[in-house]
Design a protein around this nucleic acid. Sequence first.
DNA 1: TTCTAAAATTGACCACGGTCAATTAACTTT
DNA 2: AAAGTTAATTGACCGTGGTCAATTTTAGAA
Lengths: 194, 194
Amino acid sequence: MLKPIQNRTRATRARLIETAQGIIAAKGYGALRVEEVVQTAGVAKGTFFAHFAGKDGLMELMIGAQIDAFLDEAETWPAPQTIDDLITQIMPLIQFMTSERYVFDVILRHSGAAAREEIGPIAQTFTRQVDVVSRWLSDSPFRKDISGYLLAEGIQAFSVQAMALHFCAVNNSETMEDRLRIYLDAWLNPRLAS
Amino acid sequence: MLKPIQNRTRATRARLIETAQGIIAAKGYGALRVEEVVQTAGVAKGTFFAHFAGKDGLMELMIGAQIDAFLDEAETWPAPQTIDDLITQIMPLIQFMTSERYVFDVILRHSGAAAREEIGPIAQTFTRQVDVVSRWLSDSPFRKDISGYLLAEGIQAFSVQAMALHFCAVNNSETMEDRLRIYLDAWLNPRLAS
DNA sequence: TTCTAAAATTGACCACGGTCAATTAACTTT
DNA sequence: AAAGTTAATTGACCGTGGTCAATTTTAGAA
């Protein structure tokens, strides 16, 4: 008793998503306008909002799917043995997340951030990212005094910090990789306090 | 030759800010509408935008000022000797930052985030926070293998992470203090890898 | 085939932030 | 004081996301 979804609905939704993807491919996430999606897809505005929880809802889907794709690939890689390896392996994801200011904003807004009851797509990818990285770490030569899960959470926190600074005019002398390396070295390889 | 500011301007601006503060005090940051500010202050809408860089610009000022007030007080405190002390000393700030979802969003959006050339008020408070905390740490019994500045940056990153999770429905079993304590203990007091 | 209830769609309408050419007020200069 | 110049203010207007009562389409029941 849980399948009252008409074909029409599926088709409309698919067309909307397809149209949105086209616009994003052509002009980027930040340039997407609901009006344009709706007109190009040939449906009324109200229909859009019947299918998605607003523009942000659509963005969550699109961006979440993209992040998931990166995580799919990341999952196939072996456990990094050095910090540079680790950075290399998460850079594609970070590159995407910072590809547009708008994208980063949407991600931040929805990262730990399901105001509603159920957890949103982007928040899910954050959880998943911690899982993936934490699995890597169980086979990596980094500090073992804390759990891989906590370690992975820290990597996420520092990644966000590095990405935020990336958008700050003042901090643009250093590359993001450099910043990340400094953070992660301090986090993953603490030297004993003398 | 750098004082062509008329009194009228100062007065208008002051009235606008005053009005905004009143609305915020009464209904919170998220409920502020430019229309209401403008009508209550008795000026035209265009005037508002002649004085501030949009609603976000005003919010940057108001929220930035509030954060600065917390940092003013924080600066008078002695260097924390334990992680619990440290948490106690930054909690007022964190409490304010998470007092409203809207406030946290504005802060994130402007934290490392001056899209323009000059650094915005909120981004400045982030820099200042690192300075304040880093000054504390020079007199604290935490790890010494990395600079106090880097240590402070990490505290900021973990604070943001803890705050983001605070707004996530899934992670609400733990209190923010608990989360922070776990993060900061791992960051500031790493045990030697065996 | 016809009727009916539920689901999907429509588009006029609203809220709200933001713009800008035109107007008014405030100062200089003569 | 009058004319000229710059700065401040105005408000009609726009872009864009979002709403919702009314309408159309669909799937089954009679």
